Amino acid sequence: MAPNPAPAQEPQDSPQGYVGLDAGDAERLARQRGWPTVRALPPGAIITMEYRAGRLNFEVRDGVVARAWKG
């Protein structure tokens, strides 16, 4: 049986620091800070609720990050 891969590392970074930033700038900054997966979502998007280490989610309204959370 193959071993489970190690979970992605999460930067010691607060998602709240991205709220209010331009979505493109926020994504670039998150990647520079070490987030391997950055996901931009429209308000009210239907998404799965599984937690994925190393993923940063943005809810984007009018090109600006309105909400940010891990997983």
Rank of each mutant, 00 (worst) to 15 (best):
A68G: 03
P36H: 01
V64M: 12
P43V: 01
E10I: 02
G34N: 04
Q16A: 14
N57V: 03
E10C: 06
I47S: 14
M49D: 13
A53C: 06
A26G: 03
A26C: 04
V65M: 08
D13A: 04
L41I: 01
R67Y: 07
P36S: 08
W35Q: 06
T48A: 13
N4R: 15
P11F: 02
R39F: 11
R52K: 15
L41G: 00
P7Q: 02
A30F: 03
D62G: 13
A6Q: 08
S14R: 14
M1E: 14
A30T: 02
A8G: 01
A8E: 09
P43F: 06
A40M: 15
A26N: 03
V60A: 09
R33C: 00
E59W: 06
D13K: 04
R67F: 09
Q12R: 13
R39V: 15
A40T: 09
G63V: 03
W35G: 06
M49N: 13
E59S: 10
R39S: 14
E10V: 04
R55M: 15
V60M: 09
N4C: 08
D25P: 00
Q16H: 12
D62C: 05
A66P: 01
E50Q: 15
E50V: 13
V64D: 03
G24S: 10
G44H: 11
P15Q: 08
P42S: 10
V65L: 10
L56T: 02
A66H: 10
V19P: 00
E59D: 08
W35A: 05
A40W: 01
V64F: 07
V65I: 10
T48P: 07
G71W: 09
D62N: 14
P3W: 07
S14A: 12
S14G: 10
G17M: 05
A66L: 02
D25N: 10
P11W: 01
V19T: 07
I46H: 14
Q32A: 13
Q32P: 00
Y18K: 04
N57E: 05
G54R: 09
K70V: 11
R67Q: 09
R39Q: 14
Y18S: 03
P43W: 10
D25A: 15
E27Q: 12
M1R: 11
A53R: 15
I46N: 14
V65F: 08
L29W: 02
V38W: 08
R31W: 00
D62F: 11
D25H: 11
A2P: 13
P42W: 03
Q32L: 11
A8V: 02
P5W: 03
A66S: 15
M1Y: 10
A30Q: 04
K70A: 09
P42D: 10
D22S: 07
P7R: 04
V60K: 06
G24P: 00
